[in-house]
Design a binder for these strands. Structure first.
Lengths: 328, 328
DNA sequence: CTGTTAGCGCGTTCAC
DNA sequence: GTGAACGCGCTAACAG
């Protein structure tokens, strides 16, 4: 009969008439110690009867780990790539019996207070989900250096830096546009333009531009780029468009609609990322899907390797995949 | 100079040449004890020099609380209402110096293993974000009873049950359609139909239907309902439509497009919830916004009240708001 | 009034 | 199989 208070290991020991160490051995099915089946059973039953649950703080204190992973992220919660990452992270970590402490950050440039979570023993490591460089939210390198200095095990998701000894799980931006462009080329298109914010110079945007250029020159096709500001006029005479993101594609679709251009008959459109709304655009937008869920899994895997013995730093960029809908 | 190991309270005590209790008093700015400014300063400085961070597990063990709130949710991560709730939850809890342990569940009817998080001291209470009843994912009442039985402090978000002594922060489904319908009435519409999945009978859907009916009969207008399956034909002759969700409205927009009906000129459309993609529909969909962010805040507030002294159970339904875009 | 000692809380682990 | 130290910080009771 359970009283108001939670049962402790002592209660179980008393109930099973053994010492607390035996209870611990039994419950952790320690291989080093051999406990007779008889006492083993007594302990198990006592634990069940008292509904005993080991206190995680106490055990973690001895074992030197909390079995909790901190996820620090600067992303808006409703961005598909982010939610996909979270799915992968939660799945992999719960499979490994880790839990997720969620630290949502709102742009405070150089606030590294999340480090405390590690220093106070709340978490064993960090999955650091960096925001797009182009948002200018944080100084990624600074955060990474702080984590290194604090000797906190961590992995960077969606990084845009290259710090020594750090594991990155990054988006293959170059591959995303390369894939999109190659798809259009494969469908027989020759006049393929790239539309994006061109005057901005961030790794992400330059990689995406690069992927487009690579695909075109591989097929000896002429490169043609337009800034989003040139919409809608730049659409005249175009047969196919690759955009950096769904957002830009949305603008292209609106411009085409305004000009009376039929998509996909007169103009093929494909975006190099998928957003939650991509399939709700009109017509439903063909995209390249960033394997964010897989990236989340990889991040946790990589972090776990770090936690269980020093692992080599890695740089992983899982390949993107096409999601063809109705705009090409 | 920091060694490899983290500093403990003992280190600080030694460094400041006081006993560990003094360190504790100073750092917790205990009001019961008065410590001379001199020693106080010595302690503070020593703590700073050693970069001392109290171990949360150890302190929680004594103080009987972890300062962590568990969020258990069955929602898809990319649903706007959910992400909004999370925003409110994270904001309010971090303001109160609580942290968020995130427990994403994937439909396993009666799995209440999250209770363990409370029993093992990982969390102090639970914000239980119930999935839509209509999804048939869980037996909400069962979960609630289990939490009650386990004597776990908790609050239910988006509940569809009515258990005694339980605090609910619920969606005002009735108000959402009432508001949408009233808006159309206010614009002079008289032929306003309600489109939704009518054959399903869940609290949520019935409340939404109710809101529409109330608004219509208040204005002595005739009620007219159509099941989503009657699309596109039921649109003929209609001037205005209220739908339960953006999803349904999306179907309506597609049907209208197919029939060559111009929205909003010939047909006004408004949905009783906002999704992330609502503004990306064509035309951008007018909706009613559920105050999910505020609900998240209220959930944490309510839970915190429970944690700091027994509070009355509450039932809160914050009002919805219009988000008029281009479909009406 | 300032500070100390002692012991608690809970589970793990080593020596016996 | 047991006893006891240990990990880390908090706090009640006590001494200067």
């Amino acid at each position: 009969m359970p009283q108001g208070k939670k049962a402790t290991i002592k209660d179980v020991a008393r109930e099973a008439k053994v010492s607390i160490s035996v209870v611990s051995y039994v419950l952790n099915s320690s291989t080093e110690k051999s406990i007779s089946p008889a006492t083993r059973d007594r302990v198990m039953e006592a634990a069940k009867r008292l509904q005993y649950v080991p206190n995680r703080a106490a055990s973690g204190m001895r074992r030197k780990h909390s079995m909790v992973i901190g996820v620090v992220s600067y992303w808006e919660l409703d961005v598909l790539v982010f939610t996909d990452m979270m799915k992968g992270i939660t799945r992999k970590s719960s499979a490994a019996n880790y839990r997720i402490l969620f630290c949502h950050r709102e742009s405070k440039q150089d606030d590294v207070s999340y480090l405390q979570y590690c220093q106070d023993g709340s978490i064993d490591g960090i999955v650091f989900i960096a925001p797009y460089e182009s948002l200018g939210l944080i100084d990624e390198a600074f955060h990474i250096r702080q984590m290194k200095e604090a000797k906190v095990p961590f992995v960077v998701l969606n990084g845009s830096t290259h710090e020594d000894g750090v594991s990155y799980i990054n988006v293959d931006y170059c591959g995303s546009t390369y894939l999109a462009t190659s798809y259009l080329i494969g469908k027989g298109h020759k006049d393929i333009a790239y539309v994006a914010p061109l005057e901005l110079h961030y790794t992400e945007l330059e990689r995406r531009l690069q992927g487009y250029q690579d695909a075109m020159s591989n097929s000896r096709l002429p490169v043609r780029c337009h800034d989003v500001k040139e919409l809608p006029d730049c659409l005249h005479g175009l047969k196919a468009v690759v955009t950096n993101k769904s957002d830009t594609a949305h603008s292209v679709l609106q411009a085409a609609h305004k000009l009376g251009i039929d998509v996909p008959r007169e103009l093929a459109v494909i975006a190099a990322n998928t957003e939650a709304y991509s399939s709700y655009l009109f017509p439903p937008l063909s995209t390249v899907r960033i394997p964010a869920e897989r990236m989340g899994e990889l991040a946790v895997e990589t972090l776990l390797e770090q936690l269980t013995g020093a692992a080599e730093p890695k740089l992983i960029m899982p390949p993107c995949a096409l999601e063809i809908r109705q705009t090409c």
